[in-house]
Structures are given as structure tokens and as C-alpha cells.
Simulated scan of single mutants.
Amino acid sequence: MIVCHCNSISDRDIHAAIDWMRAADADTIITPGKVYRALGKKPDCGGCLDLFIGTMEKSDRLGVPADLANLRPRRGRYAVK
């Protein structure tokens, strides 16, 4: 599925970039900006951001490294339920 039409980024591209970043550095914090950079792209209009982040959240490898997970309480969208 195409997530970002401006840059032709698919859900597979996003998951592959997350897997690659996690394999390269298990302790890295993965952000949408880092995913774009890993794919050699730059965000354009931003219309895909909600879908982009939603696709990232479906990845099993996205999680925050254990030693950083409890630094402050989570609120809002990323709150632990």
C-alpha cells in the first residue's frame, strides 16, 4: 500500500527502513524523519503523516529501547493502556 504519494513510499518501504535501522543500532530512537532519511527522501506536503506514523506503529521493531522506555510517563496517543 502506498503511504506517501509525494515520495512513492509504501508500507513495505517503511517497515524495511525500520528493520534496517534496528539492525544497525538496537538502541536508536526511530522517528518519521529518520525513516524518510533512511529511504533517501524528504517529506513534502505532510498529508500522509498520520498514515505514516500509523504504519510505523504496526512494526514489531519500532519500540523504544528498554533503558529509555520509563524515563517519563506517557500521555495521549502513545500512552500505555
Rank of each mutant, 00 (worst) to 15 (best):
I9P: 00
A79K: 13
R72W: 01
I53Q: 06
D44P: 01
L62H: 10
L39R: 08
A79L: 06
T31E: 11
N70C: 04
A17V: 12
R75A: 06
S8H: 14
I18M: 13
Y78D: 05
R74G: 07
L39A: 07
D25K: 15
V35F: 00
M21N: 09
C45F: 14
R77M: 02
R37H: 06
K34C: 00
I29Y: 05
A17L: 15
L49D: 12
S8R: 14
T55N: 02
G40K: 07
G40Y: 07
G76N: 08
G76C: 03
K34P: 00
K42M: 11
D60Q: 10
M21P: 02
T55G: 03
S59Y: 05
R61Y: 15
D50A: 11
S8V: 07
P43H: 10
S59D: 13
G40F: 07
P32W: 00
L68V: 06
A69Q: 07
A24S: 14
R72Q: 02
P65W: 02
A66L: 04
A66Y: 01
S10G: 14
V3L: 14
H5F: 11
D25Y: 09
I9Q: 04
C4M: 12
C48K: 03
L62F: 09
P43G: 06
R61G: 08
R75S: 06
D60F: 12
D44R: 15
F52S: 00
I53L: 04
A23Y: 05
G54N: 11
R77D: 07
M21R: 13
R77K: 13
R61P: 13
P32Y: 00
A69H: 03
A24L: 04
G40H: 07
A26Q: 11
K58Y: 06
I53V: 15
I9E: 05
G63T: 10
R72H: 03
I2A: 10
R74L: 13
L39T: 08
P43L: 08
C4K: 08
R12E: 15
G33N: 08
L49R: 08
M21I: 15
G33C: 00
D11C: 07
D13E: 14
T55C: 10
P65A: 08
I30L: 00
Y78R: 10
A69V: 06
G47M: 04
R72Y: 04
L62I: 13
A26F: 05
S8L: 10
A79I: 02
D67Q: 09
V80I: 14
G76Y: 03
I14E: 02
I29A: 09
R37D: 10
R77C: 03
V3T: 14
A16S: 15
R72S: 01
P43S: 13
Y78L: 08
G46S: 12
D19W: 12
D60I: 02
A66I: 08
R12V: 13
M21K: 15
V64I: 15
Y36Q: 04
D19C: 14
M56Y: 05
L71G: 05
K58S: 11
R72E: 00
G33Y: 01
L71A: 05
K42C: 08
D13H: 15
A24P: 00
T28W: 04
I53E: 08
I2C: 03
C48A: 11
S10K: 09
I30Y: 00
A24T: 09
R74C: 01
T31I: 07
K41L: 06
K41Q: 13
I2V: 12
I30D: 01
R72L: 04
A17S: 15
G46I: 11
C6P: 02
C6A: 14
